[in-house]
Design a protein around this nucleic acid. Sequence first.
DNA 1: CCATTAATTTCAT
DNA 2: ATGAAATTAATGG
Length: 204
Amino acid sequence: MKTISCMNIDESLLYSFGAEEREYKKRESVFKEEDHALYYFQITEGKVKLNNYNENGKEFIHNILGKKQSFGEAMLFLNQRYPINAVCLEKSKIIRLPKNNFFEMITQYPHLSLEMNACLSQEIFYKLKMMQSLASQNPMQRLQGLLDYLKSYHDEDCHQCFHIAFTRQQIANLTGLRVETVIRALKKMEKEGMLTLKDRKILY
DNA sequence: CCATTAATTTCAT
DNA sequence: ATGAAATTAATGG
């Protein structure tokens, strides 16, 4: 299965439609919950997390995105405010294209619309898979849902050598588990031969 | 070396 | 089994 990176539009094309690049510091917010969606965002450098906080202040991470990936584009097609926050995990460079220019661009280049459909579909697919695994009470099942998804992004055939490049805390926040539970479940999964733990790396 | 951040363990529930 | 708090390890300046 081919990876569909959501979404990677040629940078010079973005610039020709009036996009600009901005640099963000670590922990800097790109947009916040309840903001209006005014731009298409695409990462050139760095990492961005999309998150929420529940009523007890516990963080839930929806996704973590990196180089050449876009985010928040679904909101451009709706008259809705963002339901999530976008925060840089490290110093990042992000290109942003104003909404109206974005629409001009996809009108002029319809193949981008098709690609966008593929991207948004991929996201929906991910959400469905995650919902399935998050519905389980079993921590290992939840972990496996996330790990399977992350590995599907990487299509080389590689038995237990795909490095999960997230911290235990991030994994916890992506699966709605506590960090201790993640650590314990990962150890149990290793014991059962489902994955390998080497140094502190998770190989799946 | 100190400060910060992450991973793991301990301990109480 | 779970989570808060304490401890240990690693990373960065």
